[in-house]
Design a protein around this nucleic acid. Sequence first.
DNA 1: GACTAATGTTCTCGTAAAGAGAACGAATTT
DNA 2: AAATTCGTTCTCTTTACGAGAACATTAGTC
Lengths: 128, 128
Amino acid sequence: MIGYGERLKSLRLASNLTMDTVSKAAGIAKSTYAGYEAEFRQPSLEKLVFFADYFQVSTDYILCLTSEQQNIGKCSSKDFLNHSKKFHWDGIPLSHDDMKEILCFLEEVIEKNEKSNHKLAESCKGLS
Amino acid sequence: MIGYGERLKSLRLASNLTMDTVSKAAGIAKSTYAGYEAEFRQPSLEKLVFFADYFQVSTDYILCLTSEQQNIGKCSSKDFLNHSKKFHWDGIPLSHDDMKEILCFLEEVIEKNEKSNHKLAESCKGLS
DNA sequence: GACTAATGTTCTCGTAAAGAGAACGAATTT
DNA sequence: AAATTCGTTCTCTTTACGAGAACATTAGTC
């Protein structure tokens, strides 16, 4: 068990938040939260889950079991195709070709969003 | 915070292990571990990390933050939309509408694959 | 440079609960 | 039915969580 304090601290600073803000959001005393970052006190499981949601990371990341901030739904487009692990859809494995399709589509979505800042609610109907 | 006891129990039973075996491996008393499964006692973070390693799952799984035992590149379609964590694309957050689009498209891909067992290499061009 | 405000750190203390160990209960085997 | 195995529950001790206040430190203001 090493480093969850550092993780919390860097996550908090990355969001430009004070200990007071975070502790109040978590419903604990400022001194209590300071104890977490100083790592002479351990948050309860409830608090751990809260911080994961609050900072939008996995509990594994806070506990230093992974270096990836969130290991669900986030990977670079490079990783997306080259990833060692297989991707699935409701248990059905996706082929590399499927992945390329999806990648292509996602980039379309992102590009449009970036440009127009507008959701393309029709793109799905015009698919097939 | 709900269900980590059930998770531990099912993981233990899936491995055909007794409480005595698991508790000894974790270096705690049998009654202590029983408290975890009955959920009237919470494991420390060290113990949580131990169980994740011992049962080869993520801490997020034990804490019921995901329904998938390994949380990279695998989630159910239900989780896909309802997940508490935000999804991103190369750092750009995806809105819920984006997710619905993606879900719709993915289901198309899977359905076509299932029926024809053939990749639809053109679907991407006909998009926009 | 002193004054103030804001943020972070370090005390002490009460209390909740983690953890142990033994006893108990239920189920299975011999 | 005696013995063994596995799970549950009891009581007790001790740990440490969490709070609140005091203290320290930095930053901004006059």
